[in-house]
Amino acid sequence: MEETQVIIRTEQLGRRYGAITALTSLDLVVEKGDWLTVMGHSGSGKSTLLNLLGGLDRPTEGTVQVAGQDLSGLSENELARFRREQIGIIFQQHHLIPYLTALENVMMAQYIHSVVDEVEARGALERVGMGHRLRNRPGELSGGEQQRVCIARAIINSPALLLADEPTGNLDGGATRMVLELLRELRAEEGFSIVLVTHNQEVAAWGDRTIQMDDGLVIRDDLVGGTPA
């Protein structure tokens, strides 16, 4: 596999919190443009993996390379820069800033990245179908709508990797489908890779590849174990 085609490469990646081992010797390679689903019950180490990939946390063992950068060698400020330039994050609790409107929430991401461009931010919200609710605060939006604002915010800076932590955890079936549909569409247009954490089999089916984790170990990888059922 050529290096330019790889978005994530981890070698013997491990993370320990004191005596607790959250993640052990993970070797993972994800190709550019792939949609990787990580499954497992809570405490299986999938959130830890996501934090390590997003440069929010540092490994205690091994190395993690994302978009050609070795994250373990970066300083605090370089990590912040990596996050704003390469990573888009979507959370389960659609973490939006409560006092800013939908539009301003997207603009905040622009501000953190470089400069604020209102027209572009509006365009991004229109793309996720939120063009009619630009001036509403998060409290006035439904769960699905909030998650769509989050998606607009996550993709506004054209990240190489989109990390989604249970993005549909709080949504009903219809909204879930809409969100996933949106992600698929955007991936096709923008070409970013997705790592999505979930414990829902149906959601996992939307991805290209699924790994199953337990106790900080990958117990099943359908690239190794064959195509999913």
Partner: peptide
């Protein structure tokens, strides 16, 4: 706190 964490997670530096 959550908002601060969010801003940091989006890539703002500590000083920022």
């Amino acid at each position: 706190g959550r908002e601060i964490g969010l801003i940091k997670a989006m890539g703002a530096t500590r000083l920022g």
